[in-house]
Amino acid sequence: MREVDARGLSCPEPMMLTEEALKADKGAVRVLVSEPHQKMNVEKCAKDHGRKFTSTETDDGFAVEIEPA
């Protein structure tokens, strides 16, 4: 699974990195972010790409697991 570590990055970097990963990889992608609004942005990004996702809280933020296309 491809992993995008966007923890601690300012907007819109987490979204840009997620976009980049979703375009490059049709497989599963795991995105790590620090803050709730970044988690929502990543989820929105996955939705825009027609991908399903599951979000979980981690020790230092959130992990959004995006399913394969």
């Binding site: 923890r7 601690g8 990055l9 300012s10 819109p12 970097e13 840009m16 620090s34 230092d60």
Partner: peptide, 13 residues
Amino acid sequence: ALKKGFSLGRAHT
């Protein structure tokens, strides 16, 4: 600049 890879780096808890 963002598209060229601009970033101020990571913030930490």
